[in-house]
């Protein structure tokens, strides 16, 4: 299922503002890749460019290539809607649809692709996805209650269930734990560990310990100066980044000297 991503020389713009410059990196299938760096360094923008979510903001565009198993996501014939089906996303704040029940939230994506499914099939997918998100046991008795009644951590796992229900190739997570308490954070981290057997996972995090705990590879982003675009400073195996980085800026950041 899982696919690899190769980014070559990518510049990301919001109108005339260049947010990220010259990013080149590879993301291995069935692994967890973390993007770390100080606020405003472009790591979230980079993540959003991987499934063309940054285009939601008018005037955003990229130069360069993003290849999913060799297919250019920005190619002429590529439909951003389909890109987002193939590359799912989980956001900083849990955002279940407030008017839908837990079950309907999980299958919301499936309702979109135009194929009619039987109710039983949807129920089965809902259960499988909720189990996959380690949420099934907590919500199986209240599947038809609104998703907004869950705790923050449960809501976030509901959003993960919703994202994996459409069977994406890659799962992007934009600071998925920053709005959660420590216990819920641990639950999500455990889940990430399990999900990487099936999906390629890219996670943006503010929390260096989290990056060290969950990721196989870590990329460090930094601003090249005030008002200048963000850059990928260094990317390597997580152990290497945290123990023996090649760049001074990375070491300064890891050891807490700035950011």
């Amino acid at each position: 299922m899982a696919k690899r991503i190769d980014v070559t020389d990518l510049d990301i713009y919001y109108g005339s503002f260049k947010a990220v410059e010259g990013a080149t990196l590879s993301i291995e299938p069935r692994s967890v890749t973390a993007f770390i760096g100080p606020s405003g360094c472009g790591k979230s923008t980079m993540l959003r460019a991987l499934n063309r979510m940054h285009e939601v903001i008018p005037g955003a565009y990229v130069e360069g290539k993003v290849l999913l198993d060799g297919e250019d996501l920005y190619g002429a014939n590529v439909d951003p809607v389909n890109v987002r089906r193939t590359i799912g996303m989980v956001f900083q704040r849990p955002n279940p649809f407030p008017t839908m029940s837990i079950r309907d939230n999980v299958v919301a994506g499936l309702r979109l692709d135009g194929t009619r499914r039987k109710k039983a099939e949807l129920d089965e997918i809902a259960e499988r996805s909720l189990r996959g998100a380690n949420l099934w046991d907590e919500v199986k008795d209240r599947l038809h209650r609104p998703g907004s009644g869950l705790s923050g951590g449960q809501q976030q796992r509901l959003c993960i269930a919703r994202a994996i229900a459409v069977e994406p190739q890659v799962l992007l997570m934009d600071e998925p734990c920053s709005a959660l308490d420590p216990i819920s954070t641990l639950a999500i981290e455990d889940l990430i560990e399990q999900l990487k057997e099936r999906f390629t996972i890219v996670i943006v995090t503010h929390n260096m310990q989290q990056a060290a705990r969950v990721s196989d590879t870590t990329g460090f982003f930094n601003l090249s100066g005030i008002g200048k675009p963000g850059k990928l400073v260094e990317m390597a195996e997580t152990d290497v980044i945290f123990s023996n980085p090649t760049q001074q800026a990375t070491e300064d950041y890891i050891s807490g000297r700035f950011g």
Binding site: D69, E71, G75, N77, V78, D79, N82, V83, T86
Partner: peptide
């Protein structure tokens, strides 16, 4: 084969 499938999945004709 899977590459072809992926291309189909991504590239809905516009």
């Amino acid at each position: 084969q899977s590459t072809a499938l992926l291309r189909m999945a991504l590239s809905g004709r516009r």
